[in-house]
Design a protein around this nucleic acid. Structure first.
Lengths: 171, 171
DNA sequence: CCTCAATATTTCATGTCTAAAACATTCTGT
DNA sequence: ACAGAATGTTTTAGACATGAAATATTGAGG
């Protein structure tokens, strides 16, 4: 690979900067700083998991996330439900499921009760494949977050739960 | 718009689910729960800001993020620096900058010292346009996070700063 | 029964992302 | 001085995203 792992690497390491004196003022508001950190941490973890999943299983993060939702709902899920759960547009789900069907991971059954909707669920092969990936995935997350002191973790989770609730209200 | 705002809406609202009894077991590990919340909150905020930026300024989030980096570095930034700052691949930056140049927002000057590298910086029009957008952007972030009690905010920011540092070490 | 709003999905154009390969330029050690 | 490694950018193919328009199907009311 000639391309350096730009996706992985990180941050304003001063030596990496082009300009000489660069100022780089910290954003003023606490709120803005929180948002930028939130975004940065998430992107970092996402990139890590993405490359791992691709390297070990040749699967994309989007596919994995979709399968994770299926895994938690044995009864199957409709297309719109997936879209809501994944916070992704309806059009995106169509393509994703198409590809997963082609790979034999999931099936699309038409719904007896409502012929507009489809029910997406795992194939046996899909469920098996996901179980393996989920195990590794969990290990990776643990390796990233495991070393944080336990009370810090509990605090952080608490904050995030609150934030999520608040965001749901604001829509 | 016929498509419901799937991107905006949220979560396993039980009524929205297709299946009847659905179990939906909570993930076991604290770490996994943190990660899922982090991802959920970030996606939520990202989607909100994305649609706002598009609606009010007809600009994409990626373009805005790139311009935000330029704004903090008056001396200009190289392509790879942008890639590092945005946690995005080199190839993505090429396309993004191409489009921003075509729209007259930024310029690409070749670097005297190192002829491999380019220096990307604002055009005057770009800087003006960004100033307006940044103002609104900040207001939006404030409207999302402003109501959190101040000590909770400080705590959250602290946690995130620690997390970010930790992630940088783990690479 | 028939119309019309709401719901569920797909299709389309366009934008953005990655990973890998291809180049170009610079740096390093001998 | 020069080969080869390192660095900086672009190009490519393919995946995935949005937002809007197009199709079905359902359900409620006249």
């Amino acid at each position: 690979m000639r391309t350096p792992p730009a996706t992985r690497s990180r941050a304003p390491s001063p030596s990496a900067e082009t300009g000489a004196a660069d100022s780089i003022p910290e954003p003023a508001h606490l709120e803005l700083r929180i948002w930028l950190r939130l975004l940065g941490c998430t992107a970092q973890i996402e990139n890590y998991l993405r490359t791992r999943l691709r390297a070990e299983f040749g699967i994309s993060l989007a596919r994995f996330d979709l399968m994770a939702q299926l895994d938690r709902r044995p009864a199957g899920v409709s297309m719109s439900d997936i879209s809501r759960l994944l916070l992704v547009s309806n059009g995106a789900v169509t393509g994703l499921v198409d590809r997963l069907v082609k790979e034999g991971m999931v099936t699309r059954k038409s719904n007896a009760g409502d012929r507009r909707a489809f029910i997406v669920s795992f194939t046996p092969a899909g469920r098996r494949a996901f179980a393996k990936m989920a195990k590794r995935h969990e290990e990776w997350v643990l390796s990233l977050l495991g070393d944080i002191p336990i009370d810090a973790k509990q605090q952080l989770l608490g904050q995030l739960v609150h934030l999520k609730r608040r965001l749901e209200d604001t829509r």
